[in-house]
């Protein structure tokens, strides 16, 4: 089963290798059943509340194209990781479970509610507090404030990586990075200088890609 969004044009490009095409296609498959998840239901539920506070996909994608990022993150937790972790954290799957439970516990204590009951603004401020090292719990199967701070970096990276690795995001942002050749020929790019997109390269569909006024630096 696949999502209901129209197949992104980049997946129909003759500049994709069959391996790359099947990798990208697989990211569009529907979520697994809850019993197959790595995270516990409580932790997964917290994840689904937090992800939109970090990355509101509706700013970039149409409703049909919105990516199930919690599913992608959960699935990735079971597979090979990227070869390292912060020394202060337990294994990735444990760290994610404990971090999310720490957050759920915090919202219950602080707001008397589950993370889903909080507004995106409240959840955003909660993420800021975690990044600042202000939320944690020195208890078994929970993370300390310092550990939560470390984990927040992993959280941010995994959400953003899962988003940008998805063909819906690449199509919407007009990214041509994976269109470098078919099975027989690595074609690469003839044009590499500014404002010289070639005909096969996607054009961004989201207005946010237009030049922006000067923003504050961080």
């Amino acid at each position: 089963m696949t999502t209901h969004a129209a197949t992104p044009k980049i997946l129909q490009s003759d500049r994709l290798s069959s391996r790359t095409r099947s990798i990208l296609q697989a990211r569009r498959t529907a979520p697994q059943t809850p019993t197959e998840r790595t995270l516990s239901p409580a932790a997964y539920d917290t994840l689904t509340a937090l992800v939109p506070a970090l990355l509101p996909q509706d700013e970039l994608l149409s409703p049909a194209e919105v990516i199930d990022l919690p599913h992608a993150i959960d699935r990735a937790l079971t597979g090979p990781r990227d070869g390292w972790r912060f020394a202060e954290l337990p294994s990735d799957a444990c760290a994610w479970e404990y971090a999310l439970l720490t957050i759920a516990e915090h919202t219950h204590n602080q707001f008397g509610a589950s993370p889903h009951a909080l507004s995106l603004d409240q959840l955003g401020l909660l993420l800021d507090s975690i990044t600042a090292g202000q939320i944690g719990n020195e208890a078994p199967q929970r993370l300390t404030a310092f550990q939560m701070q470390r984990w927040s970096s992993d959280f941010r990276a995994d959400v953003i990586e899962a988003f940008l690795a998805h063909p819906h995001a690449q199509q919407a942002l007009g990214i041509s990075a994976y269109l470098n050749g078919d099975d027989d020929t690595l074609t690469g790019f003839h044009n590499v200088t500014p404002d010289t997109a070639e005909a096969f390269e996607p054009i961004a569909s989201t207005p946010l890609t237009a030049p922006q006024p000067q923003e504050r630096s961080s």
Partner: peptide
């Protein structure tokens, strides 16, 4: 690039979405 944005800035919400949208620029 996105991973560097993630680990190198505290941006979130619409500001993060706008940042990611600027990849091609």
């Amino acid at each position: 690039w996105g991973s560097l944005v993630a680990r190198g800035t505290p941006r979130r919400g619409p500001e993060l979405a706008r940042t990611l949208a600027q990849y091609n620029r």
